[in-house]
Computed example of a mutant assay.
Amino acid sequence: MRFSQRIGKRPVKTVLQVESIDDDLKNRLWNEILQSVFNRLSETRDFKKNSAKGKFLLLIWKEFFGFAIDKIPQLSTDIVSEHHTIQFIRVWFFKAEWFEIYDFIEFLAELSHDFAQSCNEALEKEVAGYRIINGKVVQITSEEEVQEIEEALVDNDQLKSVNTHLRAALDFLADKKNPDYRNSIKESISAVESISLKIGENPNGKFADALTAIDKKIQLHGSLKKAFMALYGYTSDAGGIRHALSDEDVTPTFEDAKFMLVTCSAFINYLKAKASL
């Protein structure tokens, strides 16, 4: 985890890679294109005809880029220069805008299920806000979700402990080398617990008692109170998040951790607004 990330200087949008692709993700995606697409194509070639790779490159040239086929790099008449064509694509790829890269990823994913699967693994490892679903690139982290997290992380002297828990939750979620979804969920719910105890004016009390105290102050809706009690209970029961692991526990996923971070951030923002913090 980089220093700028640990102290909250990198925007959440950048950390979760929404509307952006950093160098690590770009390199990983290009490697997947080479390994899972180009290098897996057959090298067999009929006499004076393109190989499977050459035909595939010609398809990219005319269907994705929309170029005239007589302008593709050639070794001789009707034989595509695979090396020079891939080099052209590489130069374009590393200069392209983030959304152009996803256009290209989607184009390839519609042609190769194996590529879509390996590409999704790369996207998850680099904490991208997108996944390939049924051959289409789908945004899984919305602008609204990012805004909720960023708003909850705004510096507030009264809520330093809340911010500490939220930043830890984001760090555990966004650690590319060793993501810790279990502890991310734990920190997210701990942030909610922290602000609840603060508003309830009982720093050593229980979460349920804090919500009851909050209800008396700001008229917390009964369904909302039950919902967060249920979420708090989930962190006690699932995956050994707040207690020791058992053999039956299910390992939390990126989606689980992101849901908790966004949901807890939204609830924190709600409580801050209602309690005028």
Rank of each mutant, 00 (worst) to 15 (best):
Q219A: 15
A128W: 05
D209H: 07
T251I: 10
N269I: 01
D256Y: 00
K217T: 06
D78I: 09
A116T: 01
T44E: 14
I185S: 01
Q5T: 15
V15T: 12
A168H: 10
R90D: 12
G205Y: 01
L166T: 04
V262Y: 03
G200D: 05
I189W: 03
S194A: 15
K272S: 04
D46P: 13
L261H: 02
I7Y: 10
I189S: 04
I195H: 04
K225C: 10
R10K: 15
S223L: 15
N39F: 13
A174N: 06
K226M: 15
K160T: 11
N183W: 03
F107L: 06
D180F: 08
K272T: 08
F38M: 09
F104C: 06
F207Y: 14
V127A: 09
E124I: 11
Q158I: 08
A116E: 07
D247R: 06
T44I: 15
S196Q: 05
G205R: 02
K206V: 08
E143A: 06
L59K: 15
K125T: 05
S42Y: 09
Y234Q: 12
Q74K: 15
G8R: 00
Q147E: 14
R10A: 12
L153P: 01
S188P: 03
D70Q: 14
D209I: 04
D24E: 07
I185R: 04
S112G: 02
D215E: 15
R90Y: 13
A52Y: 14
F65A: 07
G200A: 09
D247W: 06
N178K: 15
A257H: 02
R28A: 14
